[in-house]
Simulated scan of single mutants.
Amino acid sequence: MLNIEKLKEILKEEGIESEQITITKNNVLCQAIRIILPEHPSVSPVIYYNSKETLESFLFKIHAVLDLGDPQIDVKKLTDLDYVKSHLTLGIQRKSTNTNLVKKEILNLELYMKITLELKNTDEIGTCKLNCNLQEQLNVSEKELWEAAFANTVSHYSLKNMYQMCGIDDNDDCMMYVVTSSLQNAATALCFPKLFEKFCIEKREAGCYILPSSLEELIVLPASAVERSGMCASSLANMVQSVNAEAVEPEIQLDAVAYYYSTESNDIQIVAEYENGQ
């Protein structure tokens, strides 16, 4: 178990200022350590930990981010517009009360933007959510930033059936498909109806049901398969809730809500609203 006081003592001996903080991440309270950089007061790396974390493993995380002689993160990149636009991607979460975050509502969720920060001498990466203060420093319109984030995100999705996910040859009889992303933000695909339009055209379906198993994966069910099973909105929502309870960490869970993509309207709706509108 991680001893925070011991950790802070070790960091202080190394000349690293830190503080223990609680942060709301996707509307879940998470414990973290904030590293204070006197030379860059507006930028403070935040590193999350959990109850199973060991002192050694967490120190390794901190040292991977911060090296006193050669900082791993070049914070100047956060105010370099060209860098930001080329490293800006989408994130999605439950609706929050953070008024400083640059965000927009989508369905029952909110979309935000994050900047990927490459760490020197390592394969690890860090991210920084785009807030209003940073946008002001960049002196750029919100519209231009959203366009860059959408463009940088869309090419990273993959939609495969469960057989393919398990390394088995494709099988056209499979009734369950999964959307993933190399950016680990597959739930942002809810912003891209064209992904599901292509799927429905290929499968000759009038629509498909979309279940957010986490921020990182979406389960897709052809409409014909759901109709044959007799499932309704509450049944689909219960499936999401069951997956969340059994296998998904709270900070990457989404609400127990299912969605429907319709080829007729070419949009995505909450299933309960779609069924009520029919």
Rank of each mutant, 00 (worst) to 15 (best):
Leu195Tyr: 02
Phe199Arg: 03
Ile201Thr: 10
Phe192Lys: 09
Val179His: 05
Pro193Arg: 09
Phe192Glu: 12
His156Met: 08
Cys174Gly: 03
Leu190Arg: 02
Lys198Asp: 14
Phe150Thr: 06
Asn152Ile: 04
Ala187Asn: 04
Glu202Gln: 11
Asp170Ser: 11
Asp170His: 13
Ala186Tyr: 06
Cys191Leu: 07
Val154Ser: 12
Gln164Glu: 15
Phe199Pro: 03
Ser182Gln: 12
Leu190Pro: 02
Gly167Leu: 02
Asn171Ala: 05
Pro193Asp: 08
Phe150Leu: 15
Thr188Leu: 03
Val154Arg: 12
Met165Arg: 12
Met175Asn: 14
Tyr177Phe: 15
Asn152Lys: 07
Lys203Tyr: 03
Pro193Lys: 08
Ala189Glu: 02
Phe199Trp: 01
His156Leu: 07
Asn171Met: 10
Leu190Cys: 04
Thr153Arg: 05
Leu159Asn: 00
Ala189Val: 01
Val179Arg: 03
Phe199Tyr: 08
Tyr177Glu: 00
Leu195Cys: 02
Thr153Asn: 08
Met176Glu: 14
Glu197Leu: 12
Tyr157Ile: 08
Gly167Ile: 04
Asn185His: 06
Ser181Leu: 07
Leu195Glu: 05
Leu183Thr: 07
Phe199Lys: 03
Ala187Val: 10
Asp173Thr: 13
Asp170Trp: 14
Asn185Ala: 08
Phe199Thr: 04
Lys203His: 06
Phe192Ser: 09
Asn171Ser: 08
Ser155Ile: 07
Thr153Val: 04
Lys160Trp: 12
Asn161Ile: 04
Ile168Gly: 00
Pro193Asn: 10
Met162Tyr: 11
Lys203Phe: 01
Cys166Gln: 15
Tyr163His: 15
Asn185Glu: 11
Ile168His: 02
Lys194His: 12
Leu195Pro: 03
Glu202Arg: 10
Val178Ile: 14
Thr188His: 03
Gln184Arg: 13
Cys200Thr: 04
Asn161Asp: 15
Asn185Gly: 06
Met175Asp: 13
Met175Ala: 11
Asn152Ser: 09
Ile168Pro: 00
Ile201Gly: 00
Met162Asn: 11
Ile201Ser: 05
Ile201Pro: 00
Val179Tyr: 01
Ala187Leu: 05
Tyr163Ser: 12
Asp172Phe: 04
Met175Thr: 13
Lys194Ser: 15
Thr153Gly: 08
Phe199Ala: 02
Ala189Tyr: 00
Cys174Tyr: 00
Gly167Met: 04
Ala186Phe: 04
Arg204Lys: 14
Pro193Val: 05
Ala151Phe: 08
Ser158Met: 11
Lys198Ser: 14
Lys194Phe: 09
Thr180Val: 05
